[in-house]
Design a protein around this nucleic acid. Structure first.
Lengths: 108, 108
DNA sequence: ACTATATGTAGGATTTTTCCTACATATCAA
DNA sequence: TTGATATGTAGGAAAAATCCTACATATAGT
């Protein structure tokens, strides 16, 4: 229900890299993913578990391989969380523009 | 240059709550923020430091108070990071819709 | 059945995070 | 100046995250 484990999962660069690989190269078995890392295979497996618990990846067993695929839906809750801050940011830009307009009025 | 410390800062619920307070209630002195937490004031101060190092808040010294205000700009890099995943998500939805259309064709 | 492959789990060492209580610093007010 | 207020920093305990090397499990191929 909360976006909490999603934010926690995204805190690790290794896990964000895993998501990037799955996004750009599609679903892959765990071993092939692990090969890309300067880290032991079991450690990558742990990271995959964190992502899975956060709902960010799903696994499909194919023979003795486990293919992991991206599940982007939980990221949409991050986007939703971001919305009011984006509004705030735009508001600040608008305010700055207003200020610049005033300055132009003063000098022109 | 990297969004790394931003992602790390957002991992903590306490820090996200701080950002929410600053967003919804505007800039406030550290003490007033700390009062809202079930946590010691120095701990809140540490969280503010993490947010500050990530560029997510800025402080303005007013007398003996330090007013913290939201700096939303770094969050925009998170939004940018999110974009390709949003595309992926929409793509999956479109694919699902296509599948549903096919099913309707079959049965109707 | 036996061996090789693919992968998760256990147990533990190391590092990082989180949180606390004391203490230091700076400002305000009388 | 003296005392109260606002806040950061130091030092350390406790918890959590990270990463490793064995080991367990399950499947594939011979």
């Amino acid at each position: 229900m909360t976006a909490d484990p999603v934010f926690a999962a995204l805190a690790s660069p290794a896990r964000r890299e895993l998501l990037r690989l799955l996004l750009e190269e599609g679903a892959q078995p765990a071993g092939r993913l692990a090969d890309r890392f300067d880290m032991s295979r079991p450690s990558v497996s742990e990271h995959l578990k964190v992502l899975k618990d956060a709902g960010l990846v799903a696994e499909t067993r194919r023979g003795r391989e486990r293919h992991y695929r991206l599940e982007a839906e939980p990221l949409m809750s991050v986007r939703d969380w971001l919305v009011p801050y984006e509004r705030f940011w735009r508001g600040k830009l608008a305010g700055l523009r207003g200020l610049l307009d005033e300055m132009e009025d003063d000098h022109g």
